[in-house]
Simulated assay, not measured.
Amino acid sequence: MRDRIRAAATTAAPTPSGIRAPQTGRRAIATGWVRGRPGPSYPAQVLNALADQLTPTAAEPVTVEVWTDALHTAGRTVLATVPRIVCTATLDHVIATLPAPRISQGETCGEWALRLRTAARSI
């Protein structure tokens, strides 16, 4: 007997281009699947936008205020046109994969931006 969770995670038949699209609609939207070719997922786009927000202040140390403001701006920028449920799923994924800034070690915004871009590539 197959359980519903594993059955929902299965993928559909291959498309003509050979790419397998996820079967569930919410998961397809949250991971950023586009017809034909997958692009960067929404969580990866948010992490890259967050790194872009931190780049102008690369030499300054990361503070809680700096990274929360940058995260809010990045989330609003990337997720402005998607449904609320997709925003929630995307931000949950971002928070789960977000490398924590090393505030106590004096990490700069530029150093954290590099770690964010590395995390975005792995999503």
Rank of each mutant, 00 (worst) to 15 (best):
R2A: 11
R2P: 14
R2H: 11
D3G: 06
R4W: 06
R6M: 10
R6H: 13
R6Y: 13
A7F: 06
A9Y: 08
A13V: 05
P14W: 06
T15C: 04
P16Y: 07
S17Q: 11
G18V: 04
G18R: 05
I19A: 13
I19R: 13
A21Q: 13
A21F: 04
A21K: 05
A21L: 07
A21P: 00
P22Y: 05
Q23T: 15
G25L: 13
G25F: 09
G25S: 11
G25W: 12
R26D: 12
R26I: 12
R27I: 11
R27M: 11
A28Q: 14
A28P: 07
A30R: 01
A30L: 01
A30F: 00
T31K: 02
G32R: 02
G32N: 05
R37Q: 14
R37H: 14
P38D: 02
P38C: 03
P38A: 12
G39W: 01
G39S: 05
G39P: 01
P40A: 15
P40M: 12
Y42Q: 13
P43F: 11
A44E: 03
A44Y: 00
A44N: 03
Q45G: 09
V46C: 04
L47V: 05
L47R: 06
A49N: 01
L50C: 02
A51R: 02
Q53P: 03
L54G: 00
P56L: 13
P56D: 13
A58H: 10
A58W: 08
A59S: 15
A59D: 15
V62G: 01
T63Q: 00
T63D: 00
V64H: 07
V64P: 00
V66F: 00
V66Q: 04
W67D: 01
A70P: 02
A70T: 05
L71N: 04
H72V: 08
H72G: 06
T73I: 03
T73W: 02
T73L: 08
T73A: 15
G75L: 04
R76F: 06
T77D: 10
T81R: 12
P83Q: 07
P83S: 04
P83W: 08
P83D: 10
R84I: 10
R84M: 08
I85E: 10
V86L: 03
T88M: 05
A89D: 15
A89G: 11
A89C: 08
T90F: 07
T90A: 09
L91D: 01
H93N: 15
V94I: 03
V94M: 02
A96D: 14
T97F: 06
L98M: 14
P99R: 01
P99N: 02
A100D: 06
P101C: 10
P101K: 07
P101R: 07
I103N: 03
G106F: 09
G106N: 10
C109L: 00
C109V: 00
G110M: 06
E111P: 03
A113G: 08
A113K: 03
R115H: 05
L116K: 01
T118N: 08
T118A: 14
T118I: 11
A119D: 13
R121H: 12
S122N: 11
S122D: 14
